Structure formats: structure tokens, C-alpha cells
Simulated scan of single mutants.
Amino acid sequence: MNLQKFSLEQLASFVQGKAVGQTEMQLDGLASLTQADAHKLAFVNADKYLDQANQSKAGALIVTEELRAHITSQQNFIVVENPYLAFAILTHVFEKKHTAQGIEATAQIHASAIISDTAYIGHYAVIGEHCVVGDETVIQSHCHIDDGVEIGKQCFIDSHVVLTGHCKLGNRVRIHANTVIGGEGFGFAPYKGKWHRIAQLGSVLIGNDVRIGSNCSIDRGALDDTIIEDGVILDNLVQIAHNVKVGANTAMAAKCGVAGSTTIGKNCIFAGAVGVVGHINIADNVTVTGMSMVTKSISEAGSYSSGTPMLESLHWKRAAVRFKQLADAPLTQMLKRLDHMQAQIESLESTFKLRK
């Protein structure tokens, strides 16, 4: 395999950094500090990595000016304000690009579909009536694009993805394998002991620069659309129910679940396995820590947590007993008596003040 190589100066120009040392040296990839060799570029993001940086065999390091002063074993640098951001940008330089265009012979595409000449449609993909696929979009093998779906420019749709419910995707959307967008929402009306299915008549609207991981489900709306705004990133195994709105640049880690008709603000962060009940509103700039259960609306930005932190088994069992005791009747009665005594004390204090 022929690796693409870049000079240190070229790489620095990609991130608007300053090349220091052997600016014409050739580098062929990125690596961690511990695994990098003389042909690789690594990054140093904090003081705690300085020991590793001084022992690293990397050909060059991405650093800040301040960190560079503490690295004595290395002479070749790219100096930037934010090494981690520079690293993120350079991953795209070395990423293997999908350059194929055209339609594979085994793909099935309805005559009414509009497919850009620069798009790629993989083997055994199925594209229905009146679909639109934009410029430079890649649709991998075995995808099912149902009738009326619209996909923007420079999107990447991985294998076995299903897009249905007349959903619409913006530009530069990435959807990974086995995800379903626009599936039927979980809507049923209970009557006389039976569940009566509600046909889901809405759709899903996805903005620009959205990333959706593998095995996710985003359900179409019952009446109004489910909306995923620009810049949202979803990890694997995320469930977004019908009529949910997720604000721009919000991030959700794996196994998050959001129940129907909830609105989530912009720039929120949900750690792994967060659960959110339906029909509530969450403000912008809210962080919810891992495995929390959000049961009511959040109106102010900040960090929120729920659940029981990990303890040693014996300590947890003791704590569980105490939790149960909090709800026992005798304790409840004691709290009521304390409240009554507090009220009596306040009444006496008021009487004394009046006599004075």
C-alpha cells in the first residue's frame, strides 16, 4: 500500500500552524505518542503527556508554544493554539477517501429518482420513487432508500442503512451501518384493554453536518416532523422517538434514549445511557451525566445528574436499606411532627415580638 506523504511545512499549513525544525521532512500518518515512529506525527495536548512526549519516537509533534519549551528530546514541531483540534483536522488529510462514482450494476433505482452524476450507489442498494441524491454523496451496499427520500450533497450512507418516511437529509450527513431513519414511531391509543396503532404521518428532517452512529433509530413524527438540527452528533445505539427536536451541535453518547415530543436545546451533552422522558423541554447548554434519568423539564443551563454512584457491594446494600427507611411510616410521622414543632416555635417567636 502506497502511503501519501506530506512535508512538515505542508501539514502545518493545513492547520494554520508554524513548522519548526526540518520543515521538508516527509510524514505519512498520525500515531499516538507511544506508537509513533520516525515517519509519523503525534500530538501533545497537556502537561501530563510531557513525559511520553520526551520518550516518543515520533518524527514530529503537534504542540503549543508553551508545551514545546518543555520537550527537549524533539526538534520537529507544528506549533498551534489547540493541538487536539489540529490533530482532528489532520485526520481528514490522512483519511482514506472514497473516490468511486457512478451506480453499481446490481443497484435498483426507480426511473423517477434523481441521482447526481458525481454520486456513488453501491451494490444491491435500492432507491425508490422520486428520491434525490446530491453531488458526491456515497451510498454503500444494501442500503434501502424509500420513496420520496431526499439526500443532500457530500453525504455518506453506510451499508444496510434504511431511510424511509419521506425523510430529508441536509449536506455532509454521515449515517453508519444498520441505522434506521424515519421508521414508524411508537404510537398507540389504548382502548378496552387493546392497543390501537396510530399511523405516523410526519417525517424526519436532518440538518447539515450531522453524524449518526451505527444501530440508531430516529422515528418519524406522528403529525409534526422529528427534527435533528445542524451539527448534532449521535453515538451508536441511540433512540430518538417521534416528534423529538434536537438542537444544533448537541452530542449524545451511546445508548441514550429520548421519548416522544421532547425538545432538547442547542449545545447539550448527554453522556452514555441517559434516558429522557417524553413531552418535556431541555434548555441550551445542558450537560447530563452518564446513566441519568431526566424526568422533568430543565430550564437552566448547567450539569445535571441522577442515579446511584457505584459503591462496594456491602456499602451499597446498606445504603439501599437506608433509602428504603426514608419512606417508612414512622420516619414520615417524625418529619411531620418536626414540621409541626417548627411551626409552633415560629408562632411563639411572633408572639414575643408583638409583646415587646
Rank of each mutant, 00 (worst) to 15 (best):
A327H: 15
V80Y: 01
W316S: 12
K296I: 12
V276D: 03
F156T: 04
G59T: 03
I240H: 01
V238Q: 01
H123F: 07
V80T: 01
A38F: 11
T263S: 13
H160F: 13
L314S: 15
V133R: 01
A199V: 14
A283P: 07
M293I: 04
T295N: 10
R220A: 12
F352P: 09
V321E: 11
K336Q: 15
D230Q: 12
L30F: 00
R318P: 13
A42Y: 00
A327F: 15
R337M: 11
Q344E: 05
A271E: 08
E129G: 01
E229L: 08
Q101N: 06
G202S: 04
L90A: 02
C167M: 11
T263M: 14
L61P: 04
A36T: 03
K18V: 12
Q200V: 09
A319N: 13
M291P: 09
Q333D: 08
G207C: 15
V149Q: 01
Y49H: 01
E349G: 15
A241F: 06
L169P: 08
N178L: 08
G213V: 06
A329D: 14
S112E: 02
L348S: 04
N2P: 08
N2G: 12
G231P: 12
F6Q: 03
D225I: 10
M293Y: 02
T332H: 12
F14I: 00
T99M: 09
A253N: 06
A273S: 10
C131N: 06
G148A: 09
L8E: 00
A189F: 15
H144P: 13
R337K: 14
T91C: 03
S214I: 05
C256R: 02
Q101W: 02
A31H: 11
G59H: 05
G202R: 01
I115W: 04
A251M: 10
I78Q: 00
S203F: 11
Q16F: 04
D339M: 02
C143T: 07
D235H: 01
M1A: 09
V138Y: 01
A86W: 00
H39Q: 14
V258T: 10
R337S: 14
L201P: 13
R318T: 10
G213Q: 07
S306Q: 00
T106F: 08
T263R: 11
L90E: 02
L3Y: 14
L8T: 07
E104C: 06
A251I: 15
I139K: 02
I212T: 01
P330K: 03
V126D: 09
S350L: 13
S73T: 15
L311V: 03
L354A: 12
A46Y: 07
